[in-house]
Design a protein around this nucleic acid. Sequence first.
DNA 1: CAGAATGAAAT
DNA 2: ATTTCATTCTG
Length: 884
Amino acid sequence: MKGSNRNKDHSAEGEGAGKRPKRKCLQWHPLLAKKLLDFSEEEEEEDEEEDIDKVQLLGADGLEQDVAETEDDESPEQRARRPMNAFLLFCKRHRSLVRQEHPRLDNRGATKILADWWAVLDPKEKQKYTDMAKEYKDAFMKANPGYKWCPTTNKPVKSPTPTVNPRKKLWAFPSDSSRDLPSPKKTKTEEMPQLNFGMADPTQMGGLSMLLLAGEHALGTPEISSSTSHPDAPSKQCQASALFQFAEISSNTSQLGGAEPVKRCGKSALFQLAEMCLASEGVKMEESKLIKAKEADGGRIKELEKGKEEREIKMEKPDEARLQKEADVEKSAKENGRDSKELRNFEELRMDDIMGIKMEDPKDIKKEELEEDQKCSHFPDFSYSASSKIIISDVPSRKDHLCHPHGIMIIEDPTTLNKPEKLKKKKKKSKMDRHGNDKSTPKKTCKKRQSSESDIESVIYTIEAVAKGDWGIEKLGETPRKKVRTSSSGKGSILDAKPPKKKVKSREKKMSKEKSSDTTKESRPPDFLSISASKNIPGEVPEGIKAEPLTPTEDALPPSLPGQAKPEDSDCHRKIETCGFRKSERSCKGALYKTLVSEGMLTSLRANVDRGKRSSGKGNSSDQEGCWNEESWTFNQIGTSGSKKFKKTKPKEDSLLGSTKLDEEFEKKFNSLPQYSPVTFDRKCVPVPRKKKKTGSMSSEPTKTSKGSGDKWSNKQFFLDAIHPTEAIFSEDKNTTEPAYKVKNAPSIPNTPEPTTMQEPLVGSQKRKARKTKITHLVRTADGRVSPAGGTLDDKPKEQLQRSLPKVTEAGCNDECSHNREAAETRSSTPEMPAVSAFFSLAALAEVAAMENVHRGQRSTPLTHDGQPKEMPQAPVLISCADQ
DNA sequence: CAGAATGAAAT
DNA sequence: ATTTCATTCTG
């Protein structure tokens, strides 16, 4: 299809035949092109005129060209994305959970599960999402009246442009700031050309956006005012979060370097990530140690670090110094208790350190990276500064919140967040660029040092290490390596640099504009700190220790939590020395991802956001929460919120603010959406197998079961439990807003009989889904043989199965279930069972089987991992079920 | 980059 | 009815 379309595109006109008018799309695209123009200046001329003109100018042909051109600019960012539908919202909100439960599961699998959940979801709850989606859409439309959804075959057009991601950006508006822009035809609003300035697109940022919000919330005051920054730059955004800083950094880099800088940025970003990881890890380690043994450990770490340092290179010095200082500071802080003074001092120290580091870093780096003189120098600075900043933020927070688990989560988040996303992007890019060199196979590693693999790889390593749980020590060791690598790999770096550009670029541009004028870098950091501190406040539970386990949990080591630190350290050393320390990347990766992204990031972020709302702006929240502020959506109107003044002065800002607000609101709303724990779904599924919509259902979610996730989930569970042990649903925000809500949900979900069974009309999408699912399902479930069986069964057996299932489940649910589930999961690990639609998904069968097995007592085995040995038993069971 | 899911929108 | 695309991330 696509291909054909594309071809058509060329011919375009004629064919149009069925397909869609590509032209339209084209018209829109031009808008994107504008960005370039716009970016030239910020003045606000919002005029639609420009848009229109541009559009016109572009004409059909222009479009393509523009697109191509845009590459540089990174059209991608600009485009406004169409609003998410209810399901997507749901996915966004719950994906992390799913992932947590099923770390191994890939996204697709997660998506399927989500679909299952969605299917099962109580109509009421669903409605909430639907409503939210609708609101969102309405707001969006208001903001961009002219927005059209999809031109259809645009991609093909773009496709030609190799660099940009064709798909994402196509039409949309100019990025974040202006959603209005997009309105191609109407263009009523004034759009801001400023695209460049805009912060990173919240949308693109994805989870990161949350961070921003959190930051804002923490600050509490939208007004924040641009004490530091000029009027134009929206202070909020700047201050908003580490993310912001990150963006700035990148932007700065870009400024320095010009085109090439981009590369550096990428590096810097990578570095930052790496550092962050290390730092965070280090901190954690330290804290945990402190808690446990207190300071003694810290010394150890230092020693270790030193040793590494020697081996590795100068690069470490900064880190080390930093770490040590941190450690010291922390100690002092802890000792004192949590004095604000201490904190301050700490922060100050940090700042100093940072500054010092910055100063120093360049030198060292330069030495190492002689190859790239200037570039390197710049780059390093940024990276370090960034990392240092980040670290700082983390540390204080931890201190403050030692006690609260949530706090920990939060703390981790920022770091995590940044890492994952950027990482991805970078990876991708890097991959893209590199191709030739190494495919970005981070894994291999032995060579790391020697060869100049890419920065990315190094980062990955770090991440992996983190994921593994080796963190503390390894980090230290790793970081340096990475750095070294990077440095050494100047070549690679260059290559790498490209990839990051695009993404970074946009941000950079924006950032650069704002910052360019100032020396803001320096000025901002302080703000940032303050922000971070504020964030921290909310912190809840301390548990540095817990935190560790969580992260590490992922793959392998739940068992060895206590002793981890040392052993790992030793391991780390060995690894380092041997140089081969790598474990399975995948495992690491997966773990890391999971850990960082899912757990830490989103969850913590959300929590953060929520807290921020509560603490800072309870009052505020109320206003916004109720409904979307139209204003927010339309950047024009912005006025309502306190920031009006700014707006007036500068439209740009307004736009930014508007966008920000928009996002903010969106975030709020989004956060306010109920989040359900897997347990909930499990229950639902089990007890009420019927849910299935038309086709069916979701009866099975063996995997999901609360315990099913096994270690990881259990870890998280603490989280849940904290909130509501019993209740399945946990909504962070809700607490504040609607306490009752939860309760309501819980009951409803589980038991709802769901009369709806058949009535629902199959929508096209559904149909397709049904079709696919059946097939997929079968295949996947297939732990083995099941697949076929499932397929056959699909239609009729559901009832029977349902019946059977419920019984079993009920019986075993409580205790045994968990085991069963686990077993099931493990077994099916690969196969993500719960495909959506199949009535009785194999998963269900599997579950049943598992249960039976359990009864038999077999279940123990399955755990072994992928081991599919269990399948055998299942099969029989399944059959039996089917027979019933 | 494809793809998994669902749904709104556009064709 | 059918096709896009939104989000998220892995392979």
